[in-house]
Nucleic acid binder design. Structure first.
Lengths: 126, 126
DNA sequence: CTGTATCCTTTAGGATACTG
DNA sequence: CAGTATCCTAAAGGATACAG
């Protein structure tokens, strides 16, 4: 979803799904949470080289509102917040696997560049 | 792909795939070509209510450059141009099926609105 | 550590007019 | 019919500073 309440009626399921994953870093956030189960804000920031605090926070809020990410706040000092996938988020990740496979095939076929990601699970993400 | 030559290195397959389907109408174009096999420019325009000529042409050029759409120009007058899916485009469509299913489930679960599409194949697109 | 607030640049998308 | 060209608006994203 965008930040606005609800953009409008969807035309098909693809629309409704792309609306949720559209965002420069959302796919990576999804994958990072899938790979590690639980991540803190600062861990996600380190895992996404180049992301700004604003965008990371904004994306996480939207994904939370879309029901794919769970945000857990611990009443400690210093503050501690953990992010994880909801059941729906995990299902979304599963649904993205074939698309990821197609994308990797595309990268291979067209000889596109791929940035090395620290600690990325090479088996399925590359 | 964006209109710029190449945005930059991809981080994972999802990135590389989303880059190709990101665009307000690309998913629908994909589906329309899948459903009909071959479509002319004006047919696509009618199938995508609200699309501007500029965006449709631009999207089709990008999809052609990305190797998922084939553009066939007939040397006739009046002009005739046909669009269809390449093998890669058809594979992309297949890879999008689980995502579409997830999207429809999301629409159902959250009670989101869906716009009725003329002549859309209800079996898998709704 | 986990964010917000503000300001700014870039890009996507749209309206309209025109052309081979 | 199948587009281009031009101009414009809106939305996404980024830099930086500050706060609980």
């Amino acid at each position: 979803m965008a930040k606005a309440p609800r953009t409008g009626p969807y035309i098909c399921g693809i629309d409704a799904a792309l609306d949720v994953v559209s965002g420069k870093w959302k796919g990576l956030v999804l994958w990072e949470l899938h790979a590690h189960g639980v991540r803190r804000f600062s861990e996600l920031r380190r895992a996404l080289p180049g992301v700004s605090e604003k965008m990371l926070a904004q994306h996480l809020r939207e994904m939370e509102a879309d029901g794919i990410v769970l945000r857990t706040v611990y009443a400690e000092v210093p503050p501690k917040v953990e992010y994880s996938l909801t059941e729906s988020g995990a299902a979304l990740n599963e649904a993205l696997l074939p698309l990821g496979a197609w994308g990797r095939e595309r990268v291979r076929r067209e000889g596109l560049e791929v940035a090395p990601v620290p600690e990325a699970p090479a088996s399925a993400a590359g």
